[in-house]
């Protein structure tokens, strides 16, 4: 099992991801630079957070048009696992691999805190292990999930809402909706369930030393992949 951690100019959670994967999840992981065009030899892709290309034009817009992302789109079409956290989610949404878009937080603030999440569906490789409310950090200014009415109905009907912001008891109440996302959405999966994008950072919650290990419930999915 070998995970590609994609690196773009402006990625800044790449080292966290690599260390989390190697030291805590216990899989092998290597960086792959954005102008590479092959993912040969890799079994999964992790798109880390950051401010790729300075967030120019829109968050994730330029990175999503890079050579490695064209390969990641092909890779995902084979049903292989792809996860993007924070800016990685923005890149996946911009690439069209995931539905919707991420807008400026409702309160205009960059929010850096722990949030509670509940799985919106357990029927995907990424969410099957999330059997309780989990606590994971967020750190973003543009994480307000949006999709039009038809799109929302479609992701609800197809069970594509991977995670919602909830309170500690697991209720998706408005007070728990930290950035004003539609339907409290914190993460979505594609129809096939192999591509996950989420604003929270599971890779920052895989060591007790860093304040929590709930991220393992998501990251552990990678240990179940047949490589």
């Amino acid at each position: 099992m070998k995970v590609a951690v994609l690196q773009f100019p402006g990625s800044n959670c790449d080292q966290d991801a690599l260390k989390s994967l190697r030291e805590d999840v216990g899989v092998s992981a290597e960086y792959v630079w954005h102008d590479e065009s092959s993912l040969n030899g890799f079994d999964a892709v992790f798109i880390p957070g950051g401010f790729t290309y300075g967030d120019y034009l829109r968050c994730g817009a330029i990175a999503s048009r890079s050579a490695i992302m064209q390969e990641a789109i092909r890779f995902a079409s084979e049903g292989r696992p792809v996860i993007g956290a924070c800016n990685g989610f923005q890149i996946l949404a911009e690439s069209g691999l995931l539905p919707g878009a991420l807008l400026r937080n409702k309160n205009q603030k960059f929010i850096c805190e722990d949030v509670f999440l509940a799985a919106g569906t357990r029927r995907s490789m990424w969410t099957q292990g999330v059997d309780r409310v989990i606590r994971i950090p967020i750190a973003h200014g543009e994480g307000r999930y949006f999709i039009d009415e038809d799109g929302l109905k479609s992701i609800q009907d197809n069970e594509q809402i991977a995670f919602r912001y909830v309170n500690a008891q697991g209720s998706a109440i408005v007070e728990a909706n930290v950035n004003g996302s539609l339907d409290n959405i914190a993460g979505v999966i594609n129809k096939e369930g192999n591509v996950l994008g989420l604003m929270p950072h599971p890779e920052r919650a895989t060591k007790a030393l860093l304040g929590g290990t709930d991220g393992m419930l998501i990251m552990n999915a990678l240990t179940l992949v047949n490589a």
Binding site: L57, R58, A61, E94, A101, F146, I147
Partner: peptide, 9 residues
């Protein structure tokens, strides 16, 4: 459509 605008938003 391809880059300058994200027509979702």
């Amino acid at each position: 459509k391809k880059l300058l605008a994200n027509t979702v938003i």
